[in-house]
Amino acid sequence: MNQYPAQLPPPIVLTFAASDPSGGAGLQADLLTIASLGCHPVSVTTALTVQDTVGVASILAVEADWVEDQARTLLEDMPVAAFKIGLMGSAENMQVIAEIVADYPSVPLVLDPVLASGRGDELADEEMIATLREMLLPLTTILTPNSLEARRLADEDQGDEALTLDECAQRLLAQGCQYVLLTGTHDNTPRVVNSLYGRESGLLRSDVWDRLPGSYHGSGCTLASAVAAHLARGMAARDAVQSAQDYTWQALAAGFRLGMGQYLPDRLFRLRAHDRLRNG
């Protein structure tokens, strides 16, 4: 009997995220992105949402005990190569997740601090932000905030409106992150500038991307998940960040509008391009 040759299994990325029934952001975005980059995604559902491509109507956080049981069961069974964290739903969930990932200090952690939806719906209160600062930032390998999130996380006193983005990055690094990838998608600039800062060396790289027309649902989830997937495959932080940005920009450029709101990134753009070439 012929047997298939032995193959190494794909690296595993564990994502903590809320379910998005539109498939644009959250858990669904993470799974698509991680799988499309050659990793095996496993997941812990932190919250259920009622949302579409226009915005978020409501959130129901999963109980912290359920979050912990989901994660511990997976981690006792499978070797995880990277963690990715998105919307956590409650301060209690943040505490539990921090306790879990702290048990795996050698596993890189990418944290996307989801504080509001693209429409501006508030997704995190002040207690959650304080918990994130205190318990999760010190465990984070790469933090991926946009400029609005960076200012909100860095300004603990909520009064220092004059903070520059460089100063925000330095404050976040001082709180324990190894790297901060500060994205410029929310800035009023002709092109998008994303900057990577490191704890030891300050600004490590800036990447400039053409600003695409329209707005996109799930771009931040896509970028953070892509970074986590590349770290899981053994890339160094700088290379993982560059490759993840390239993937995300291409997914956005190939995006489509399925509903009445934002465009959705096409995380399977490579597969569809291959099909188009094959079909002539």
Rank of each mutant, 00 (worst) to 15 (best):
R119Q: 04
P113S: 15
L111I: 11
T140C: 13
S117W: 01
T144S: 14
E126Y: 08
E134L: 14
A124K: 03
N146A: 15
L143D: 02
G118Q: 10
G120T: 07
A116Y: 02
M128L: 12
R119P: 00
I129V: 14
T140I: 15
L123K: 03
M135A: 15
R119A: 12
E134Y: 02
I129H: 03
T144M: 11
A116E: 07
G118K: 08
R119G: 00
D125Q: 10
V114P: 01
D121I: 00
D112R: 04
T140K: 13
D121S: 05
P113H: 14
V110W: 06
T131M: 09
M135C: 09
T141I: 10
L136C: 14
V110G: 09
D121N: 08
V114C: 08
R133G: 13
I129P: 00
E127N: 09
M135H: 09
M135I: 06
P145Y: 12
N146Q: 12
V114T: 08
P145G: 15
D125E: 11
N146E: 13
L143G: 03
T141C: 07
E126N: 10
D125Y: 11
P145D: 14
D125W: 09
V110E: 04
L111N: 09
L111C: 09
P138F: 05
E134I: 02
L123G: 04
I129D: 03
I142T: 13
L115Y: 02
A116R: 06
I142P: 00
I129C: 12
I142G: 02
N146H: 10
